[in-house]
Design a protein around this nucleic acid. Structure first.
Length: 565
RNA sequence: GCGACUGUAGUCUAGUGGUUAGGACCGGGGCUUCCCAAGCCUCUAACCCGGGUUCGAAUCCCGGCAGUCGCACCA
Protein backbone atom coordinates (compact mmCIF):
# COMPACT_ATOMS: atom_id res chain seq x y z
CA UNK A 1 0.00 0.00 0.00
CA UNK A 2 1.11 3.58 -0.18
CA UNK A 3 0.71 6.20 2.48
CA UNK A 4 -1.08 8.54 0.10
CA UNK A 5 -4.10 6.22 -0.25
CA UNK A 6 -4.49 5.99 3.49
CA UNK A 7 -3.97 9.72 4.03
CA UNK A 8 -6.62 10.36 1.43
CA UNK A 9 -9.03 8.06 3.27
CA UNK A 10 -8.18 9.83 6.52
CA UNK A 11 -9.03 13.18 5.00
CA UNK A 12 -12.21 12.01 3.30
CA UNK A 13 -13.64 10.21 6.27
CA UNK A 14 -12.60 12.58 9.01
CA UNK A 15 -9.70 10.89 10.75
CA UNK A 16 -7.11 13.63 10.23
CA UNK A 17 -7.01 16.93 8.40
CA UNK A 18 -4.04 19.22 7.79
CA UNK A 19 -4.40 22.08 10.28
CA UNK A 20 -5.32 25.61 9.20
CA UNK A 21 -5.83 24.40 5.66
CA UNK A 22 -7.97 27.40 4.65
CA UNK A 23 -4.93 29.59 5.40
CA UNK A 24 -2.55 27.39 3.47
CA UNK A 25 -1.76 24.97 6.26
CA UNK A 26 1.22 24.71 8.59
CA UNK A 27 3.72 21.94 8.11
CA UNK A 28 3.84 19.44 10.92
CA UNK A 29 0.41 20.16 12.34
CA UNK A 30 -2.70 18.06 11.91
CA UNK A 31 -6.22 18.14 13.32
CA UNK A 32 -8.01 15.02 14.43
CA UNK A 33 -11.46 14.86 12.84
CA UNK A 34 -14.46 13.24 14.54
CA UNK A 35 -13.38 9.67 13.81
CA UNK A 36 -9.71 10.40 14.47
CA UNK A 37 -10.50 12.02 17.76
CA UNK A 38 -12.46 8.93 18.80
CA UNK A 39 -9.70 6.56 17.66
CA UNK A 40 -7.12 8.61 19.54
CA UNK A 41 -9.23 8.44 22.69
CA UNK A 42 -9.52 4.68 22.30
CA UNK A 43 -5.74 4.34 22.06
CA UNK A 44 -5.29 6.45 25.18
CA UNK A 45 -7.94 4.38 26.96
CA UNK A 46 -6.12 1.11 26.24
CA UNK A 47 -2.79 2.57 27.34
CA UNK A 48 -4.36 3.91 30.53
CA UNK A 49 -6.02 0.58 31.17
CA UNK A 50 -2.73 -1.28 30.82
CA UNK A 51 -0.77 0.97 33.15
CA UNK A 52 -3.30 2.39 35.56
CA UNK A 53 -5.58 -0.58 36.07
CA UNK A 54 -3.11 -3.27 34.97
CA UNK A 55 0.00 -2.12 36.83
CA UNK A 56 -1.44 0.19 39.46
CA UNK A 57 0.32 3.30 38.21
CA UNK A 58 -1.08 6.76 38.92
CA UNK A 59 -1.95 9.44 36.38
CA UNK A 60 -1.27 13.16 36.47
CA UNK A 61 -1.74 16.11 34.12
CA UNK A 62 0.69 19.03 34.13
CA UNK A 63 1.08 22.27 32.12
CA UNK A 64 2.45 22.41 28.60
CA UNK A 65 4.14 25.77 29.23
CA UNK A 66 7.04 25.37 31.63
CA UNK A 67 9.40 27.96 33.12
CA UNK A 68 12.95 28.09 31.84
CA UNK A 69 14.46 26.51 34.95
CA UNK A 70 12.80 23.18 34.17
CA UNK A 71 14.67 22.88 30.90
CA UNK A 72 17.92 24.22 32.28
CA UNK A 73 17.80 21.36 34.73
CA UNK A 74 16.62 18.76 32.25
CA UNK A 75 19.36 19.70 29.82
CA UNK A 76 16.98 20.47 26.99
CA UNK A 77 17.93 24.14 26.87
CA UNK A 78 21.60 23.44 26.29
CA UNK A 79 20.99 20.50 24.04
CA UNK A 80 18.63 22.51 21.88
CA UNK A 81 20.21 25.93 21.84
CA UNK A 82 23.11 25.25 19.56
CA UNK A 83 24.31 27.86 17.16
CA UNK A 84 24.88 26.17 13.87
CA UNK A 85 26.64 27.36 10.79
CA UNK A 86 26.48 25.64 7.45
CA UNK A 87 29.21 25.52 4.81
CA UNK A 88 28.09 27.21 1.61
CA UNK A 89 30.16 24.76 -0.36
CA UNK A 90 29.73 21.23 0.97
CA UNK A 91 26.71 22.17 3.12
CA UNK A 92 28.08 20.39 6.15
CA UNK A 93 26.66 21.93 9.35
CA UNK A 94 28.92 22.77 12.30
CA UNK A 95 28.42 23.92 15.85
CA UNK A 96 29.55 27.56 15.70
CA UNK A 97 30.87 27.53 19.27
CA UNK A 98 33.10 24.57 18.44
CA UNK A 99 34.65 26.39 15.48
CA UNK A 100 35.78 29.30 17.66
CA UNK A 101 37.13 27.08 20.43
CA UNK A 102 40.32 28.62 21.75
CA UNK A 103 39.58 32.04 20.26
CA UNK A 104 37.43 33.07 23.19
CA UNK A 105 37.56 32.12 26.89
CA UNK A 106 33.94 30.97 26.89
CA UNK A 107 32.37 30.53 23.44
CA UNK A 108 29.19 29.13 25.04
CA UNK A 109 28.25 32.60 26.23
CA UNK A 110 28.39 34.25 22.79
CA UNK A 111 25.35 35.07 20.72
CA UNK A 112 25.01 34.53 16.98
CA UNK A 113 26.35 37.97 16.06
CA UNK A 114 29.40 37.68 18.30
CA UNK A 115 30.15 34.21 16.99
CA UNK A 116 29.86 35.40 13.41
CA UNK A 117 32.11 38.38 14.17
CA UNK A 118 34.73 36.18 15.80
CA UNK A 119 34.68 33.78 12.87
CA UNK A 120 35.05 36.59 10.32
CA UNK A 121 37.90 38.21 12.28
CA UNK A 122 39.79 34.96 12.45
CA UNK A 123 39.04 33.88 8.91
CA UNK A 124 37.39 30.62 9.95
CA UNK A 125 36.46 28.43 6.99
CA UNK A 126 34.83 25.05 6.61
CA UNK A 127 37.01 22.45 8.36
CA UNK A 128 36.07 19.87 5.75
CA UNK A 129 36.37 21.64 2.42
CA UNK A 130 37.79 25.09 3.34
CA UNK A 131 34.62 26.60 1.82
CA UNK A 132 32.98 29.82 2.93
CA UNK A 133 30.64 29.52 5.91
CA UNK A 134 27.06 30.84 5.92
CA UNK A 135 25.22 32.78 8.60
CA UNK A 136 25.22 31.62 12.19
CA UNK A 137 21.79 30.32 13.03
CA UNK A 138 20.15 29.49 16.30
CA UNK A 139 18.95 25.90 16.31
CA UNK A 140 16.59 25.92 19.23
CA UNK A 141 14.01 23.25 18.73
CA UNK A 142 11.87 24.39 21.65
CA UNK A 143 9.10 26.94 21.15
CA UNK A 144 9.80 29.93 23.35
CA UNK A 145 7.25 32.18 24.99
CA UNK A 146 7.07 34.47 27.98
CA UNK A 147 5.05 33.97 31.11
CA UNK A 148 3.06 36.93 32.35
CA UNK A 149 3.11 40.55 31.15
CA UNK A 150 6.39 41.95 29.98
CA UNK A 151 8.84 39.32 28.99
CA UNK A 152 10.67 38.89 32.24
CA UNK A 153 10.06 35.24 32.72
CA UNK A 154 10.96 32.97 29.85
CA UNK A 155 8.85 29.93 29.26
CA UNK A 156 9.00 27.08 26.80
CA UNK A 157 6.47 24.70 25.40
CA UNK A 158 7.48 21.33 26.73
CA UNK A 159 9.24 19.00 24.30
CA UNK A 160 8.10 16.04 26.39
CA UNK A 161 5.56 15.50 29.16
CA UNK A 162 8.10 13.68 31.31
CA UNK A 163 9.45 16.78 33.08
CA UNK A 164 6.01 17.43 34.55
CA UNK A 165 6.29 14.10 36.31
CA UNK A 166 9.88 14.58 37.48
CA UNK A 167 9.24 18.00 39.00
CA UNK A 168 6.32 16.50 40.90
CA UNK A 169 8.39 13.67 42.32
CA UNK A 170 8.24 14.91 45.96
CA UNK A 171 4.43 15.11 45.83
CA UNK A 172 4.08 11.80 44.06
CA UNK A 173 6.49 10.09 46.43
CA UNK A 174 4.45 11.20 49.43
CA UNK A 175 1.22 10.28 47.63
CA UNK A 176 2.67 6.78 47.25
CA UNK A 177 3.38 6.62 51.01
CA UNK A 178 7.13 6.99 50.43
CA UNK A 179 7.47 3.64 48.72
CA UNK A 180 9.11 2.40 45.55
CA UNK A 181 8.42 1.31 42.91
CA UNK A 182 6.31 4.27 41.93
CA UNK A 183 4.74 4.36 38.48
CA UNK A 184 3.32 7.59 37.06
CA UNK A 185 1.72 8.19 33.69
CA UNK A 186 0.85 11.32 31.78
CA UNK A 187 -0.41 11.91 28.30
CA UNK A 188 -0.66 15.18 26.44
CA UNK A 189 0.85 17.45 23.90
CA UNK A 190 4.50 18.13 23.30
CA UNK A 191 6.15 20.59 20.97
CA UNK A 192 9.32 20.55 18.90
CA UNK A 193 9.97 23.14 16.26
CA UNK A 194 11.19 20.56 13.77
CA UNK A 195 13.37 21.80 10.96
CA UNK A 196 11.62 19.64 8.44
CA UNK A 197 8.37 17.88 9.37
CA UNK A 198 7.82 14.98 7.02
CA UNK A 199 5.79 11.92 6.27
CA UNK A 200 2.37 13.18 7.16
CA UNK A 201 1.59 12.54 10.75
CA UNK A 202 4.87 10.77 11.53
CA UNK A 203 6.87 13.84 12.43
CA UNK A 204 4.86 16.70 13.86
CA UNK A 205 5.67 20.01 15.47
CA UNK A 206 2.81 19.62 17.93
CA UNK A 207 2.30 16.02 18.87
CA UNK A 208 0.73 13.72 21.41
CA UNK A 209 2.61 11.57 23.83
CA UNK A 210 1.73 8.97 26.38
CA UNK A 211 4.58 8.80 28.84
CA UNK A 212 5.25 6.47 31.72
CA UNK A 213 7.85 7.13 34.38
CA UNK A 214 8.59 4.27 36.70
CA UNK A 215 10.75 5.13 39.71
CA UNK A 216 12.67 2.17 41.04
CA UNK A 217 15.32 1.40 43.62
CA UNK A 218 18.63 1.76 41.74
CA UNK A 219 19.92 -1.39 43.43
CA UNK A 220 16.86 -3.45 42.70
CA UNK A 221 15.77 -3.62 39.09
CA UNK A 222 13.83 -6.80 39.47
CA UNK A 223 10.11 -6.89 38.86
CA UNK A 224 7.54 -9.02 40.67
CA UNK A 225 5.68 -10.05 37.53
CA UNK A 226 8.80 -10.81 35.54
CA UNK A 227 8.73 -14.51 36.44
CA UNK A 228 5.24 -14.85 35.03
CA UNK A 229 6.36 -13.73 31.57
CA UNK A 230 9.96 -14.97 31.57
CA UNK A 231 9.25 -17.58 28.89
CA UNK A 232 7.52 -15.18 26.52
CA UNK A 233 9.54 -14.24 23.47
CA UNK A 234 10.52 -10.93 21.95
CA UNK A 235 11.87 -10.04 18.53
CA UNK A 236 15.01 -8.14 19.39
CA UNK A 237 17.61 -6.24 17.41
CA UNK A 238 20.45 -5.60 19.87
CA UNK A 239 23.08 -2.95 19.20
CA UNK A 240 25.28 -5.45 17.36
CA UNK A 241 22.67 -5.38 14.59
CA UNK A 242 21.69 -9.05 14.74
CA UNK A 243 18.01 -9.91 14.85
CA UNK A 244 16.99 -12.52 17.38
CA UNK A 245 13.88 -14.05 18.82
CA UNK A 246 14.67 -14.41 22.53
CA UNK A 247 12.82 -15.43 25.63
CA UNK A 248 12.78 -12.65 28.22
CA UNK A 249 14.75 -14.76 30.69
CA UNK A 250 17.41 -15.46 28.05
CA UNK A 251 17.65 -11.83 27.04
CA UNK A 252 18.38 -10.72 30.58
CA UNK A 253 20.68 -13.63 31.40
CA UNK A 254 22.77 -12.99 28.29
CA UNK A 255 22.91 -9.31 29.10
CA UNK A 256 21.13 -8.31 25.92
CA UNK A 257 18.56 -6.40 27.96
CA UNK A 258 20.03 -4.69 31.01
CA UNK A 259 17.58 -5.84 33.68
CA UNK A 260 14.27 -7.51 34.53
CA UNK A 261 12.23 -4.37 34.81
CA UNK A 262 13.30 -3.07 31.42
CA UNK A 263 12.61 -6.47 29.87
CA UNK A 264 9.20 -6.64 31.51
CA UNK A 265 8.12 -3.29 30.13
CA UNK A 266 9.40 -4.16 26.67
CA UNK A 267 7.17 -7.23 26.87
CA UNK A 268 4.27 -5.14 28.19
CA UNK A 269 4.71 -2.72 25.30
CA UNK A 270 4.49 -5.56 22.82
CA UNK A 271 1.17 -6.71 24.27
CA UNK A 272 -0.12 -3.16 24.46
CA UNK A 273 0.68 -2.42 20.82
CA UNK A 274 -0.82 -5.69 19.63
CA UNK A 275 -3.96 -4.99 21.62
CA UNK A 276 -4.20 -1.67 19.80
CA UNK A 277 -3.98 -3.48 16.48
CA UNK A 278 -0.30 -3.25 15.59
CA UNK A 279 0.65 -6.31 13.55
CA UNK A 280 3.01 -8.47 15.61
CA UNK A 281 4.78 -9.59 12.44
CA UNK A 282 5.64 -5.97 11.72
CA UNK A 283 6.91 -5.15 15.21
CA UNK A 284 10.40 -5.42 16.66
CA UNK A 285 12.48 -3.96 19.44
CA UNK A 286 15.74 -2.31 18.51
CA UNK A 287 18.40 -1.29 20.98
CA UNK A 288 19.87 2.18 20.65
CA UNK A 289 23.49 2.37 19.63
CA UNK A 290 25.76 3.98 22.17
CA UNK A 291 26.10 7.18 20.14
CA UNK A 292 22.39 7.28 19.40
CA UNK A 293 21.36 7.26 23.01
CA UNK A 294 20.18 10.44 24.71
CA UNK A 295 22.67 12.15 27.00
CA UNK A 296 20.95 10.72 30.06
CA UNK A 297 20.06 7.19 29.02
CA UNK A 298 21.74 4.06 30.33
CA UNK A 299 19.98 1.66 27.97
CA UNK A 300 17.22 2.25 25.47
CA UNK A 301 15.03 0.08 23.29
CA UNK A 302 12.72 1.34 20.58
CA UNK A 303 9.56 -0.47 19.59
CA UNK A 304 9.71 -0.19 15.82
CA UNK A 305 6.89 -0.95 13.43
CA UNK A 306 7.12 -1.59 9.73
CA UNK A 307 5.19 1.06 7.81
CA UNK A 308 5.15 2.07 4.18
CA UNK A 309 7.75 4.62 5.31
CA UNK A 310 10.04 1.83 6.58
CA UNK A 311 10.80 0.80 10.16
CA UNK A 312 9.53 3.58 12.41
CA UNK A 313 9.95 4.19 16.12
CA UNK A 314 6.65 4.30 17.99
CA UNK A 315 7.72 3.68 21.59
CA UNK A 316 11.03 4.32 23.33
CA UNK A 317 11.74 2.36 26.48
CA UNK A 318 14.71 3.86 28.29
CA UNK A 319 16.52 3.36 31.54
CA UNK A 320 17.23 7.02 32.33
CA UNK A 321 19.13 6.17 35.49
CA UNK A 322 19.15 8.91 38.14
CA UNK A 323 19.73 11.71 35.62
CA UNK A 324 16.41 13.53 35.80
CA UNK A 325 15.90 13.52 39.54
CA UNK A 326 19.54 14.38 40.22
CA UNK A 327 19.35 17.32 37.84
CA UNK A 328 16.17 18.73 39.34
CA UNK A 329 17.54 18.19 42.85
CA UNK A 330 20.68 20.15 41.96
CA UNK A 331 18.88 23.05 40.28
CA UNK A 332 15.97 23.37 42.69
CA UNK A 333 17.65 22.45 46.00
CA UNK A 334 14.77 20.09 46.70
CA UNK A 335 15.45 16.59 47.88
CA UNK A 336 14.55 14.12 45.17
CA UNK A 337 15.35 10.94 47.01
CA UNK A 338 13.89 7.77 48.36
CA UNK A 339 14.61 6.93 51.99
CA UNK A 340 15.49 3.30 51.88
CA UNK A 341 14.86 1.83 55.30
CA UNK A 342 17.16 -1.00 56.37
CA UNK A 343 15.53 -4.17 57.63
CA UNK A 344 17.28 -3.56 60.92
CA UNK A 345 18.81 -0.27 62.05
CA UNK A 346 22.58 -0.41 61.80
CA UNK A 347 25.13 0.78 64.30
CA UNK A 348 27.69 2.79 62.42
CA UNK A 349 30.95 4.06 63.82
CA UNK A 350 32.05 7.36 62.43
CA UNK A 351 35.10 9.46 63.05
CA UNK A 352 34.02 12.98 64.09
CA UNK A 353 35.28 16.18 65.67
CA UNK A 354 33.99 17.34 69.01
CA UNK A 355 34.33 21.02 69.88
CA UNK A 356 35.96 22.11 73.09
CA UNK A 357 33.41 24.66 74.31
CA UNK A 358 35.43 25.53 77.35
CA UNK A 359 38.28 26.76 75.15
CA UNK A 360 36.13 28.28 72.39
CA UNK A 361 34.11 30.53 74.70
CA UNK A 362 36.87 32.85 75.83
CA UNK A 363 38.42 33.03 72.38
CA UNK A 364 35.35 33.64 70.21
CA UNK A 365 32.91 35.09 72.73
CA UNK A 366 29.43 35.36 71.26
CA UNK A 367 30.45 33.62 68.06
CA UNK A 368 31.74 30.52 69.82
CA UNK A 369 28.56 28.57 69.24
CA UNK A 370 28.68 29.16 65.51
CA UNK A 371 32.35 28.23 65.32
CA UNK A 372 31.65 25.04 67.24
CA UNK A 373 28.96 24.16 64.74
CA UNK A 374 31.37 24.70 61.87
CA UNK A 375 33.97 22.51 63.53
CA UNK A 376 31.56 19.67 64.14
CA UNK A 377 30.50 19.66 60.50
CA UNK A 378 34.02 18.63 59.54
CA UNK A 379 35.86 15.37 60.01
CA UNK A 380 39.33 14.40 61.33
CA UNK A 381 40.48 14.08 57.71
CA UNK A 382 40.18 17.84 57.31
CA UNK A 383 42.75 18.53 60.00
CA UNK A 384 46.29 19.15 58.79
CA UNK A 385 49.30 19.73 61.02
CA UNK A 386 47.08 20.11 64.03
CA UNK A 387 45.12 22.95 62.52
CA UNK A 388 41.58 22.99 61.13
CA UNK A 389 40.62 25.74 58.73
CA UNK A 390 36.96 26.73 58.69
CA UNK A 391 35.29 29.46 56.73
CA UNK A 392 33.01 31.86 58.56
CA UNK A 393 31.31 34.73 56.74
CA UNK A 394 33.90 34.47 54.01
CA UNK A 395 36.83 34.68 56.43
CA UNK A 396 39.22 31.76 56.92
CA UNK A 397 39.71 30.89 60.57
CA UNK A 398 42.55 28.66 61.71
CA UNK A 399 41.47 26.63 64.70
CA UNK A 400 44.20 24.90 66.71
CA UNK A 401 43.62 21.30 67.83
CA UNK A 402 43.39 22.38 71.44
CA UNK A 403 39.88 23.58 70.70
CA UNK A 404 38.54 20.22 69.46
CA UNK A 405 39.21 16.54 69.73
CA UNK A 406 38.87 13.66 67.36
CA UNK A 407 36.36 11.13 68.63
CA UNK A 408 34.60 8.05 67.38
CA UNK A 409 30.83 8.33 67.55
CA UNK A 410 28.37 5.50 67.28
CA UNK A 411 25.25 6.28 65.31
CA UNK A 412 22.12 4.34 64.70
CA UNK A 413 21.32 4.45 60.98
CA UNK A 414 17.84 3.34 60.00
CA UNK A 415 18.27 3.65 56.27
CA UNK A 416 19.90 5.50 53.43
CA UNK A 417 18.86 8.06 50.88
CA UNK A 418 19.03 6.95 47.26
CA UNK A 419 18.09 8.75 44.08
CA UNK A 420 15.55 6.51 42.32
CA UNK A 421 16.27 5.36 38.81
CA UNK A 422 13.72 5.99 36.11
CA UNK A 423 12.42 3.47 33.60
CA UNK A 424 10.59 5.38 30.89
CA UNK A 425 8.30 3.83 28.28
CA UNK A 426 7.42 6.81 26.11
CA UNK A 427 4.75 6.36 23.42
CA UNK A 428 4.31 8.48 20.32
CA UNK A 429 0.54 8.61 20.17
CA UNK A 430 0.29 10.04 16.66
CA UNK A 431 2.63 7.42 15.26
CA UNK A 432 0.73 4.63 16.99
CA UNK A 433 -2.47 6.14 15.61
CA UNK A 434 -1.07 6.02 12.10
CA UNK A 435 0.26 2.49 12.57
CA UNK A 436 -3.09 1.25 13.83
CA UNK A 437 -4.67 2.59 10.63
CA UNK A 438 -1.99 1.34 8.27
CA UNK A 439 -1.86 -2.13 9.77
CA UNK A 440 -5.67 -2.33 9.60
CA UNK A 441 -5.85 -1.17 6.01
CA UNK A 442 -7.05 -3.85 3.57
CA UNK A 443 -7.76 -3.21 -0.04
CA UNK A 444 -9.10 -5.56 -2.69
CA UNK A 445 -9.98 -4.20 -6.11
CA UNK A 446 -11.77 -0.97 -5.22
CA UNK A 447 -13.05 -2.19 -1.90
CA UNK A 448 -11.43 -0.80 1.23
CA UNK A 449 -11.76 -2.19 4.72
CA UNK A 450 -10.20 -0.90 7.90
CA UNK A 451 -9.91 -4.04 9.98
CA UNK A 452 -9.61 -2.10 13.24
CA UNK A 453 -9.77 -4.13 16.40
CA UNK A 454 -13.30 -3.59 17.80
CA UNK A 455 -11.89 -1.92 20.90
CA UNK A 456 -10.25 0.68 18.65
CA UNK A 457 -13.14 1.30 16.28
CA UNK A 458 -14.59 4.83 16.52
CA UNK A 459 -18.04 3.45 15.67
CA UNK A 460 -18.95 0.06 17.13
CA UNK A 461 -22.17 -0.54 15.23
CA UNK A 462 -23.93 0.76 12.14
CA UNK A 463 -27.71 0.62 12.38
CA UNK A 464 -29.76 0.43 9.18
CA UNK A 465 -33.30 -0.14 8.08
CA UNK A 466 -33.22 -2.53 5.13
CA UNK A 467 -35.57 -0.08 3.37
CA UNK A 468 -36.19 3.46 4.48
CA UNK A 469 -39.96 2.88 4.62
CA UNK A 470 -42.77 0.63 5.85
CA UNK A 471 -41.86 1.44 9.42
CA UNK A 472 -38.45 -0.19 9.11
CA UNK A 473 -36.83 3.22 9.51
CA UNK A 474 -38.74 4.02 12.70
CA UNK A 475 -37.83 0.63 14.12
CA UNK A 476 -34.19 1.10 13.21
CA UNK A 477 -34.21 4.52 14.88
CA UNK A 478 -35.48 2.81 18.03
CA UNK A 479 -32.68 0.25 17.89
CA UNK A 480 -30.17 3.03 17.31
CA UNK A 481 -31.51 5.00 20.29
CA UNK A 482 -31.37 1.89 22.44
CA UNK A 483 -27.72 1.19 21.60
CA UNK A 484 -26.77 4.81 22.18
CA UNK A 485 -28.56 4.67 25.52
CA UNK A 486 -26.49 1.57 26.36
CA UNK A 487 -23.32 3.59 25.80
CA UNK A 488 -22.43 2.11 22.42
CA UNK A 489 -21.01 4.30 19.70
CA UNK A 490 -23.56 3.67 16.98
CA UNK A 491 -24.24 5.27 13.60
CA UNK A 492 -27.62 5.43 11.87
CA UNK A 493 -27.73 5.33 8.06
CA UNK A 494 -30.68 4.88 5.72
CA UNK A 495 -29.31 6.33 2.49
CA UNK A 496 -28.53 4.36 -0.66
CA UNK A 497 -28.48 0.61 -0.94
CA UNK A 498 -27.71 -1.68 1.96
CA UNK A 499 -24.44 -2.72 0.32
CA UNK A 500 -23.32 0.85 0.08
CA UNK A 501 -24.01 1.37 3.77
CA UNK A 502 -21.99 -1.73 4.69
CA UNK A 503 -19.16 -0.44 2.53
CA UNK A 504 -19.21 2.95 4.22
CA UNK A 505 -18.95 1.33 7.62
CA UNK A 506 -16.21 -1.07 6.46
CA UNK A 507 -14.13 1.83 5.28
CA UNK A 508 -14.09 3.45 8.72
CA UNK A 509 -13.51 0.20 10.56
CA UNK A 510 -16.94 -0.36 12.14
CA UNK A 511 -16.89 -4.02 13.24
CA UNK A 512 -20.65 -4.77 13.14
CA UNK A 513 -23.73 -3.59 11.33
CA UNK A 514 -27.28 -4.13 12.56
CA UNK A 515 -30.09 -4.31 10.02
CA UNK A 516 -33.79 -4.07 10.74
CA UNK A 517 -35.71 -6.03 8.06
CA UNK A 518 -39.30 -7.16 7.39
CA UNK A 519 -38.83 -10.19 9.59
CA UNK A 520 -38.20 -7.85 12.49
CA UNK A 521 -41.61 -6.26 12.05
CA UNK A 522 -43.44 -9.57 11.64
CA UNK A 523 -42.11 -10.72 14.96
CA UNK A 524 -43.96 -8.09 16.93
CA UNK A 525 -43.55 -4.83 18.70
CA UNK A 526 -41.17 -3.71 21.41
CA UNK A 527 -38.04 -5.77 21.89
CA UNK A 528 -39.56 -8.99 20.63
CA UNK A 529 -38.23 -8.93 17.09
CA UNK A 530 -34.84 -9.97 15.81
CA UNK A 531 -32.35 -8.09 13.67
CA UNK A 532 -29.40 -9.26 11.61
CA UNK A 533 -25.91 -8.54 12.84
CA UNK A 534 -23.29 -8.53 10.14
CA UNK A 535 -19.62 -9.07 10.90
CA UNK A 536 -17.18 -6.81 9.07
CA UNK A 537 -14.32 -9.27 8.65
CA UNK A 538 -16.28 -12.34 7.56
CA UNK A 539 -19.33 -10.48 6.20
CA UNK A 540 -21.39 -13.25 7.80
CA UNK A 541 -24.73 -12.57 9.45
CA UNK A 542 -26.55 -13.83 12.52
CA UNK A 543 -30.06 -13.10 13.77
CA UNK A 544 -30.13 -11.63 17.24
CA UNK A 545 -33.14 -10.68 19.38
CA UNK A 546 -33.32 -6.92 19.92
CA UNK A 547 -33.61 -7.56 23.65
CA UNK A 548 -30.22 -9.33 23.48
CA UNK A 549 -28.58 -6.98 21.02
CA UNK A 550 -26.69 -4.65 23.37
CA UNK A 551 -25.42 -7.54 25.48
CA UNK A 552 -24.37 -9.48 22.39
CA UNK A 553 -22.46 -6.55 20.94
CA UNK A 554 -20.78 -5.94 24.29
CA UNK A 555 -19.63 -9.53 24.51
CA UNK A 556 -18.34 -9.34 20.94
CA UNK A 557 -16.48 -6.20 21.95
CA UNK A 558 -14.85 -8.17 24.74
CA UNK A 559 -13.67 -10.73 22.21
CA UNK A 560 -16.48 -13.26 21.83
CA UNK A 561 -16.37 -15.31 18.64
CA UNK A 562 -18.89 -14.06 16.10
CA UNK A 563 -19.43 -17.56 14.70
CA UNK A 564 -20.68 -18.71 18.09
CA UNK A 565 -23.27 -16.08 18.90
C1' G B 1 17.71 24.76 5.78
C1' C B 2 19.60 23.06 0.52
C1' G B 3 18.30 20.58 -4.27
C1' A B 4 14.68 18.22 -7.69
C1' C B 5 9.63 17.60 -8.75
C1' U B 6 4.55 19.00 -7.68
C1' G B 7 -0.12 22.00 -6.22
C1' U B 8 -7.43 22.02 -10.56
C1' A B 9 -14.43 20.42 -6.44
C1' G B 10 -14.42 16.31 -0.26
C1' U B 11 -11.18 12.52 -3.24
C1' C B 12 -8.67 11.04 -7.89
C1' U B 13 -7.78 13.48 -12.20
C1' A B 14 -8.28 16.07 -17.85
C1' G B 15 -6.88 20.58 -19.50
C1' U B 16 0.46 23.87 -22.08
C1' G B 17 -1.90 31.54 -23.38
C1' G B 18 -8.52 32.80 -25.41
C1' U B 19 -12.72 26.26 -22.70
C1' U B 20 -19.83 27.75 -20.08
C1' A B 21 -12.42 24.54 -16.74
C1' G B 22 -14.21 18.29 -18.62
C1' G B 23 -14.69 13.46 -16.27
C1' A B 24 -14.94 9.72 -12.38
C1' C B 25 -15.83 8.59 -7.38
C1' C B 26 -17.86 10.61 -2.93
C1' G B 27 -21.78 13.72 -0.97
C1' G B 28 -27.22 15.98 -1.02
C1' G B 29 -32.47 15.41 -3.04
C1' G B 30 -35.81 12.09 -5.70
C1' C B 31 -37.29 7.37 -8.18
C1' U B 32 -36.13 2.28 -7.76
C1' U B 33 -34.30 -1.62 -4.57
C1' C B 34 -36.44 -7.59 0.73
C1' C B 35 -28.90 -7.84 2.78
C1' C B 36 -23.14 -6.50 0.47
C1' A B 37 -20.28 0.20 -3.35
C1' A B 38 -26.64 -2.12 -8.90
C1' G B 39 -29.57 1.44 -12.03
C1' C B 40 -32.10 6.18 -13.52
C1' C B 41 -33.10 11.60 -12.82
C1' U B 42 -31.17 15.80 -10.41
C1' C B 43 -28.17 19.15 -7.46
C1' U B 44 -23.86 21.11 -4.79
C1' A B 45 -18.78 21.84 -5.58
C1' A B 46 -12.33 23.50 -7.85
C1' C B 47 -7.67 26.35 -10.82
C1' C B 48 -2.87 27.04 -3.14
C1' C B 49 -1.82 32.49 -1.91
C1' G B 50 0.40 37.24 -3.54
C1' G B 51 2.80 39.96 -7.24
C1' G B 52 4.44 40.40 -12.48
C1' U B 53 4.36 39.68 -18.07
C1' U B 54 0.15 39.96 -21.61
C1' C B 55 -5.42 42.83 -24.90
C1' G B 56 -6.12 38.10 -22.28
C1' A B 57 -2.90 33.55 -17.26
C1' A B 58 -5.16 27.28 -14.36
C1' U B 59 -1.36 27.54 -18.27
C1' C B 60 4.58 31.85 -18.66
C1' C B 61 7.93 34.50 -14.76
C1' C B 62 9.06 35.88 -9.44
C1' G B 63 8.06 35.34 -4.21
C1' G B 64 5.43 32.85 -0.31
C1' C B 65 2.78 28.58 1.65
C1' A B 66 2.05 23.37 1.34
C1' G B 67 3.22 18.33 -0.41
C1' U B 68 6.55 14.20 -2.36
C1' C B 69 11.59 12.53 -2.88
C1' G B 70 17.00 13.07 -1.86
C1' C B 71 20.74 15.59 1.56
C1' A B 72 21.05 17.43 6.49
C1' C B 73 18.40 17.31 11.26
C1' C B 74 15.51 14.03 14.50
C1' A B 75 18.07 15.00 22.48
Amino acid sequence: MNAGELLSLCKRRGFVWPSFEIYGGVAGMYDFGPLGSALKDNIVAVWRDAYKRGEGFVEIDSPTVNPEAVFKASGHLDEFSDYVVQCRGCREPFRADHLVDGLHPNPDTLDAEALKGLMVENGIVCPDCQGELGEVEDFNLMFKTSIGPGSNRAGYLRPETAQGIFVNFPHLYRYNREKLPLGVIQHGRGYRNEISPRQGIIRLREFNMMEVELFVDPEDKSWPRFAAVADETLRLVPEDGSERELRLSQAVEEGVIANDVLAYFIWLTKGLLERMGVDGARLRFRQHLKDEMAHYAMDCWDAEVLLSYGWTEVVGIADRGCWDLSQHAAWSNEEMVHFKRFDEPREVERAALKANYRGLGPMFKGEAKEVARLIEQRSPDDVSDGVLTVEKDGVQLEVPDSLFEAVTVKEKVTGERVVPHVIEPSHGLDRIFYTVLEHAYRREEDYTVLALRPEMAPIKAGVFPLMARDGLDEKAQEVFAMLTEEGMEAFYDDSGSIGKRYARMDEVGTPWCVTVDYETLEEGRGLKGTVTVRDRDSSEQRRVAISELAATLKSLLKGADFAKI
